[in-house]
Design a protein around this nucleic acid. Structure first.
Lengths: 350, 350
DNA sequence: TGCAATTTTCAAAGCGCTTTGGTAAATTGG
DNA sequence: CCAATTTACCAAAGCGCTTTGAAAATTGCA
């Protein structure tokens, strides 16, 4: 059923039917009711392809998911982020176009999406330091919002981020307060902007206490369970092992926990672990006593905020950029305790 | 830049330019080259909205991601599946439309997507037993492929699935061969079709050995890490605890492992664990000695197959249904060993 | 009752492509 | 060399909507 058929059926013009359906005022209320009912009865929905051509709007937001052929790695936070963003799109009548591309053709993909007119706006995922996509999208003149930020980019652009530096400084300080001095950092890939900021927070906390930063305790990699496991295993096997770990995601933290128990040690007693927790739906790190001490910031919530910001931007092209810092709260769980040296001292006291 | 501008620029008609770009034969090769070069130089790409209206094709595949407001749970395999499917779409010029909907309005969402003409085909995720979506999509007359199957549905429809029953029978037999007799099953939600089949495989293995099935050892829930942890913890704390676990996904298996080590036990020695491994990119359970003994079947690969099947179906409407069973291979890892009783007997022998 | 103002409806143009049904120009065959 | 093809190109229609500009119907007020 198309508009012509529906209007013939009603004995009205296409104009009137279209206006009735789209809520325009210049149509009598009784007519509108008739139209709406006929549309429902005949299961009519305006053809999206025609509507988009006629209005010049795609009513679609693009997300580009770069997939490295090398590692075959998909960012595990992606699904939760998309779920959050998608809720907002649904509520606002937007479609979500997901473009899965090889990571070396990511820019071409953005370019194509825009020149084809397939999207009204784009989300930038996983910005790197000095990310070239930001300049590209500004040049293309398409509305976009970045999930995260990109250091070294001067230009104003819209973003939604968490305070990674402060969070990691806070996590590190927490460990320092417990007497830990050798603290390992398991971070994301070195070129990711968030990893840079997290590293800076970690370093700042150590330096503020006059503790020398040991580069051999800082690791960058894809945040897999295996990365956590292998790194922690080799660290724990060596002399002068760290007594604590700061881990960028709950997934490598699973690996760290595995390495700790494999080594016959106890997490929260012999070795402490703190993490950044994205509040992934299948890894609830919550309740009265979460497994891990963590700064938590729901990536799903971030998805909602990013989506809303982009929709607003599309609706109001002239508006100033949207820059929003989400809070990450520090919650103490069972994965942390006094450093062994300090613990012995405390026990002595009694 | 649109087609009219480009053809004016070239001094050719829109017809000729369109044909040159779309590879039709009735255009001189030298002309085609000129057109292609001008298109490239001017960064021209045909407007997707106009093209879709003109051709009557959306060149878009729809995926519906139902998100339960209750559990706020997103299926963790979704991202990897989408990554696989998306590769195929990109290679074939299709877009991927992802619709995130509340799980009680899922059917309405399919209906709308089709009547709007927004998609040429649909993927059905996570089929339940006797899933109503299959009848709906047949009625709507839209091409679709199911990832999984739906028991009790008589009609022919296209699907790509793994042999869940056989896999779980095999996993259970493997444990039985090691002398385990009390074996717990941590399964997905009871109404999911895959969970039913897996449960059946587990039961079949036990019954074939004349071992009574104990319903108090069978659990159904969302496959979160916490589900694995809580279930295993309470089981291990009670008298007559199981000596082995069959777990439907690596994620709850992480929780089981945590519960085992929290109980001061050793996985692979005191307690054995076998899993279904979807080969999620961030949980590599591979290498010479995988952490878990598992039947593995890459969900990303499944995504590729499902996508290809759907594209074929769209290209050839009259073709017979595509029904494909993917193989899951059993790989032995470090999470399994002889049942304690059997182990003691073996040690005695020496 | 009559006429201007207002409300309601309509015909037709336009969105940017593809595709049908042509027409010249170039090529071929006898 | 000329008719019959074949090749290379074009004008215009059509995809199903929205929206502009105009007409018809209704209302208000003198």
């Amino acid at each position: 059923m198309n508009l012509k058929e529906l209007s013939d059926l009603l004995g009205l013009s296409q104009t009137t039917v279209s206006r009735a359906l789209n809520g325009y005022p210049e149509v009598r209320e009784s007519t509108r009711q008739k139209v709406l009912e006929a549309a429902r009865a005949n299961n009519y929905a305006p053809n999206a392809r025609a509507k988009r051509l006629a209005t010049g709007k795609a009513m679609t937001i693009g997300h580009v998911l770069p997939v490295s052929k090398k590692h075959e790695m998909v960012n595990p936070i992606f699904a939760d982020f998309i779920a959050g963003a998608g809720e907002i799109y649904s509520d606002n009548g937007f479609d979500l176009l997901l473009s899965v591309v090889d990571d070396d053709s990511e820019e071409a993909s953005y370019r194509k999406l825009v020149s084809r007119g397939a999207v009204d706006g784009l989300i930038v995922h996983g910005p790197k330091v000095n990310d070239s996509r930001i300049a590209l999208l500004r040049e293309l003149g398409v509305p976009f919002v970045v999930h995260g930020r990109s250091t070294e980019i001067e230009a104003d652009y819209s973003w939604v981020d968490v305070n990674n530096a402060r969070s990691f400084q806070r996590l590190t300080e927490f460990l320092l307060d417990l007497g830990h001095r050798r603290i390992a950092l398991l971070n994301g890939l070195a070129d990711m902007d968030f990893a840079t900021r997290r590293g800076a927070g970690y370093v700042a906390a150590l330096e503020a206490r006059g503790i020398e930063v040991d580069p051999s305790l800082m690791f960058h990699d894809e945040m897999t369970e295996n990365f956590g496991f292998e790194t922690a295993r080799s660290l724990l096997a060596q002399g002068n092992a760290p007594t604590a770990f700061v881990v960028s995601s709950i997934i490598p933290a699973m690996g760290v926990r595995r390495a700790i128990s494999d080594a016959g040690l106890e997490m929260g007693k012999d070795v402490s672990v703190v993490i950044h927790d994205d509040a992934l739906s299948y890894f609830g790190n919550d309740g009265d006593e979460p497994a891990f001490t963590a700064v938590r910031s729901s990536v799903r919530q971030a998805g909602r905020h990013v989506a809303q910001a982009l929709i607003d931007k599309i609706a109001t092209p002239g508006a100033p950029v949207h820059q929003e810092m989400l809070e990450a709260v520090l919650t103490v769980g069972r994965s942390t305790g006094p450093a062994p040296a300090l613990r012995h001292a405390l026990e002595q006291e009694k």
